[in-house]
Amino acid sequence: MVLNTQMNKTMLETQQLTCERNHRFLFQDLSISLNKGEVLQVDGANGAGKSTLLKILAGLYEDFEGEVMWQVEDYPLYIGHKVGVKDAMSARENLMWLADLQATEVSQGDIDSALAKVSLAGYEDVLCGEMSEGQRKRVNLARLFLLHNPVWILDEPFSAIDKEGVACITDRIKEHLSDAGTVILTSHQTVEFPNIQSLTLS
């Protein structure tokens, strides 16, 4: 098994990825190779195509040329700009549904402890529509503590999150990396990770 995982260390490989939007090339002939346990941080100015690249890698956006090859078949855990929690449901109901979508069996205890990790203990039954923007974002980020996808794609995970929250999420990402997980993220904040690859889009 050990030999096997070492042989298949590559998690993601892209070949000649090209994306054109509004008659402008966002990126051309982009080749990425990412191993298990590594982070890819995508940098670039606003409108440089960071979010589009992340959507392409996640499998959401299909209007591109080139090839994206993942070692795993399942979709990654994707956290985008849109929070994806329903206003009319409580934090607990939202996470239960999001876990159902990932075919992950979770108990109410698992959900409550994941919410506690993002400092939302006591908010389990509060409707997400009554929460602040940052709290809604935290409900979504609680999935990082709940689900077991090997690949995470995080688009601006730290926006609207306070310092303490950023530290907590950073620790969780490091833990995921040491479990041979793979993370692709964009962030305007500087964060330190081991095994980090940087990619700057211009």
């Binding site: 499998g59 959401l60 979709y75 985008g80 929070v83 159902d100 075919a103």
Partner: peptide, 22 residues
Amino acid sequence: KSDYEDGALEQMVLSKQPLILV
């Protein structure tokens, strides 16, 4: 509409479950 606007639809597409059942 609301699932599209708040991003829930993205999560449905990127799910381990068949989208058709959802």
